[in-house]
Structure formats: structure tokens, C-alpha cells
């Protein structure tokens, strides 16, 4: 009985200790010396190991940016390749600190899983691919087309909605597996192949004749992909969220990996606030330029991020330009896209 009591007490204290520990993710991360980041097991352009075992991709670079913000060193991050089915459990159970695994931000995920989405690092959506010889330039010209898709996915439902809304006829050619869909499209059993647009760009790389196919500009569904953290730790949530905003603000203000040191001397007050320089006025009073303080980091947190991975545009260019993915919806708000960050002030 005594042993049992001791055990029970120990487990209660253990739980309490663990609960407080998980509430301050930043302290945990600092104590262990690295950010544990959940990524995809392999997705072209988003997360994939290269020949030298280094993880690369947009999702991967975001984790490196978080590590750079916290430690001033973009290499202090470890990656856990996760399956789609286990990704949220891994975050809930605390085996990772941030999930950056092309996860779509939906209301149910945001509200019922005890998790919070920190931003949209990539605006994806369902798109169409057609053979170039079809001569189609826009999805609105697809009346009467036969469309290859996967059964039982939202892709199929979005497709029905889009064609109905545009009063167009279509014939569906559906398969159970993605490989079958691709094969059918390549064999010419349908005119159009539809899935998420980033997926279309990735798949066309594996076609024997990529030049014979084109991705149409339209996006017919919303798939906002972004990093996720556990709910209930506002500080860590803010760090992840503002790392994303810092990447965007750096691009907007023209701060790049190459010119960040030079930019520290800029007279532009916005850049000064972003990079946390001139924290003190010449007369010794606080110039209110230290914004890292609010999230428990040093004043040079953005400098570290940009030095580590560059700004959002550079990250995008490095990982997705090789897939020939255009900025599109992921351009900055002042260039016709959706990427918009609140100001740092």
C-alpha cells in the first residue's frame, strides 16, 4: 500500500512537473539545445533529404528559421519525418515542438485538436494539369473534358462544385490510388489531371515528357498550409507566428541573406525596428526598437532568421523555383499575392 501511495504521488508530481514543462516550450527548447520539428517523410520542394542527408524544402527552412530565431543558429534543429496519420498525435504528445508538414489549416483541426496554426507559409489549392497539345489556357475552357482524379477525396467534391458553378459539363475518371490516376492521365484516358497545385508541379517532374504538359493558372479550392504548435503556450505560439511574419517583413523591406549586415545601418526606421538595431537612442533612452523582448528573444532575432535562411522570397526561390512553381497567391500582398504580415512596431 505504501509503495502504491509513493508511486501514485510520484506520478502525480511527475505529471505536474511535465505539465509545467510543456507549458513553457521555449525553456524546454533552450534546455535541450535544439528545436524538434515534425516534417513530411518526403515531399518535393517542402521537405526531403538530399544526397548528403541534409533536409531541404520550404517546410524544413521554416523550422530552421525558428531555430535561428531562438538560438541564432539555423542548424540547431532536428527533424522527425512523420506520417500524415501520426503528425498531430506527435505534436500533442510533445515529441515535437513545431509541426511544419504541409498541413492544411481547417477549422476542425484548429479548434478540436488542442493545436494552433501559426500562419500560412504556402497557399496551396486544387489545380488542373492538361497536355499542352490540347491548347487550353484556362480552366474555364474545360467544358466537356474528362477529368482524372482520386476517389473519395475532397478533390472530387471540389471538382463537382467548380464545374457546376461554372455551368460546364465534365466526365469523371476516378481511381483509388494516386499512381493509377497518374497512369491513366499519362495514357491519355482523360484530358485533365487534378490534385493540389504543388502536387501537380511535383508530379510533372516524374513524367517522361514534362514539356508536353502544363498547369493551368486557376486554383479552385483553399489549402492553406502552415506550421502548427500546441495550444496553451502563447509565448511559443508567438515565436513561431512572428518568425513567419519576420520572413515576410524582411522580404517586403528588401532585407536579404546577403545584405542583412549592410541593412543594419539603414536609416529606414521600419528596417531598424525589424532588425532590432539602435535599441538605445544617443541620449541613452530606450528607442523602443527591441521587439524580441516581447517573445523572450534577443533584439537581433530577425537578423538571425535572415542570416540563417534568408527572407520568405529567398526561401521560396531556393525550394520551389526548381519545380517551376510561380509565386502566384504566395506573392507578397503588394505584388498581387496573399502573403501579408502585420508590421513590427
Amino acid at each position: 500500500m505504501k509503495t502504491f501511495k509513493t508511486l501514485a504521488l510520484a506520478s502525480v508530481f511527475g505529471l505536474a512537473a511535465a505539465a509545467t514543462a510543456s507549458a513553457a516550450t521555449l525553456d524546454d527548447v533552450k534546455a535541450k539545445g535544439f528545436v524538434q520539428c515534425g516534417v513530411s517523410q518526403g515531399l518535393i520542394g517542402f521537405s526531403n533529404p538530399d544526397d548528403q542527408n541534409n533536409w531541404t524544402g520550404l517546410d524544413v527552412d521554416f523550422c530552421k528559421a525558428v531555430a535561428a530565431a531562438v538560438f541564432g543558429d539555423a542548424t540547431k534543429v532536428k527533424f522527425s519525418p512523420l506520417n500524415a496519420k501520426e503528425r498531430f498525435t506527435a505534436l500533442q504528445s510533445g515529441s515535437i515542438d513545431v509541426l511544419s508538414r504541409n498541413s492544411t489549416w481547417t477549422m476542425s483541426r484548429d479548434t478540436t485538436l488542442g493545436l494552433s496554426f501559426a500562419g500560412v507559409t504556402y497557399y496551396d489549392g486544387q489545380g488542373f494539369m492538361v497536355p499542352t497539345k490540347l491548347g487550353v489556357k484556362s480552366a474555364t475552357e474545360l467544358n466537356g473534358a474528362s477529368v482524372c482524379t482520386q476517389t473519395g477525396t475532397t478533390t472530387e467534391l471540389n471538382l463537382a462544385d467548380y464545374f457546376k458553378a461554372n455551368k460546364m459539363e465534365y466526365k469523371i475518371v476516378a481511381f483509388e490510388k494516386n499512381e493509377e490516376v497518374l497512369k491513366a492521365y499519362q495514357e491519355g484516358r482523360c484530358d485533365v489531371f487534378t490534385t493540389d497545385q504543388s502536387g501537380l508541379y511535383a508530379e510533372v517532374l516524374k513524367f517522361p515528357n514534362p514539356a508536353d504538359h502544363m498547369v493551368l493558372p486557376e486554383i479552385i479550392s483553399k489549402e492553406p498550409l502552415g506550421p502548427v504548435v500546441r495550444q496553451g503556450d502563447a509565448q511559443w505560439f508567438n515565436i513561431v507566428k512572428w518568425t513567419y511574419y519576420a520572413l515576410l517583413n524582411a522580404e517586403e523591406l528588401g532585407v536579404t541573406q546577403a545584405n542583412v549586415e549592410e541593412m543594419k545601418g539603414s536609416a529606414n526606421p521600419e528596417i531598424q525596428r525589424l532588425l532590432g538595431v539602435n535599441v538605445k537612442n544617443p541620449d541613452g533612452t530606450d528607442a523602443d526598437n527591441d521587439f524580441g523582448k516581447g517573445i523572450g528573444l534577443g533584439p537581433d532575432w530577425v537578423v538571425n532568421i535572415v542570416k540563417g535562411v534568408g527572407n520568405y522570397g529567398e526561401v521560396f526561390e531556393r525550394n520551389l523555383a526548381q519545380l517551376k512553381i510561380a509565386r502566384g497567391k504566395n506573392a507578397l500582398w503588394n505584388q498581387g499575392g496573399l502573403q501579408y504580415a502585420p508590421p513590427i512596431r
Binding site: 518535393i44 516524374k206 519545380l323
Partner: peptide, 26 residues
């Protein structure tokens, strides 16, 4: 591989998604 451990099969499949190598024959 279903629980995210990259064994021989998982490792080979991960390689297919390297943009440097993705091709019809990879």
C-alpha cells in the same frame, strides 16, 4: 513506414521525392 520509421523501403521511396532526382525512371 506507416509510423514514420524509414526502413529500407521507406528510405528508397523518400529518395523518389528529391527534386534533384525525380524523373520517370527514378
Amino acid at each position: 513506414t506507416v509510423v514514420g520509421i524509414l526502413d529500407l523501403l521507406g528510405m528508397v521511396q523518400t529518395g523518389f521525392n528529391d527534386a534533384k532526382w525525380a524523373s520517370a525512371q527514378t
